[in-house]
Amino acid sequence: MQQQILIKKPSPVPRTIKKPKPWYRSAVQSFFFVLVALISLNKVLEEAGMAIPFLSQASLHAICPFGGVVSIYKFVTVGTLIQKIHESAFILMLIAFLLAIAFGPVICGWVCPFGTFQEWTGKIGRKIFGKKYNHYVPVKIDVYFRYIRYIILAWVVYVTATTAKLMFQDIDPYFALFQFWSDEVSMTALIILGVTITLSLFVERPYCKYACPYGAVLGIFNLFRIFKVRRTPSSCIDCKACDQVCPMNISVSSGTAVLSHQCISCMKCTSENACPVAETVELSIKGGAKQ
């Protein structure tokens, strides 16, 4: 009843109102982080004859959907996948695309262990720098920097298509993080991982924002996904809480639906989380949210 009154007569809502934050996303993120870490470890344990029972002994490449993306060219032209990539990566790529058509890049915001790792590192930065955290890069430059990941994507796809090798492995900080003990990890990848960790102390998800080629692919789905993050202007009190909480610095309050290629569908901006007004920022299909 109280919520209905808020909707009909939007009035400033005290910012101090506390509501329980859903823990589902954190739980899903932690689950996938631990799962991928254990699978990476299990591959080593298996070689030593001490594999964890009932846990996959797949390689990291076999469970990374981006391997499917970079294999598309070879799959279409030759009918086989590139070295180190298996059918499982292709299947995960298709599942990720299905999810992205429905909800956008939920793989980035909910599943990707490297995104989760950056978020966890960022919590240290947030404690150190407070409100300044995640606002260091000037907007004028930042807007253009966000497209760098498309240049990286084009380069990775081109190099993989011409060499039929998994060249991205040599610059992949995700692979470096979960295989840092392996001699397969290049020094370049370890340096990129170190830079990402350092930058995470100042900027939230720096690799996702500026460099991740897979995030670039999934980000395109934000333009036509079925369920979008929609804002209802009639009940919005313009408090900008949604903008402030967005890890990707998207200005949610300036439109009625989030179409930015940077959205990772984390739902932090919604009325379930940061938005203090009920049913104002929601994940919905067109017409689902009040206009």
Partner: peptide, 12 residues
């Protein structure tokens, strides 16, 4: 149609 984060978690 609206979805909450629980729905997204389960569907994912």
């Amino acid at each position: 149609m609206k979805l909450k984060s629980l729905h997204v978690a389960v569907i994912t």
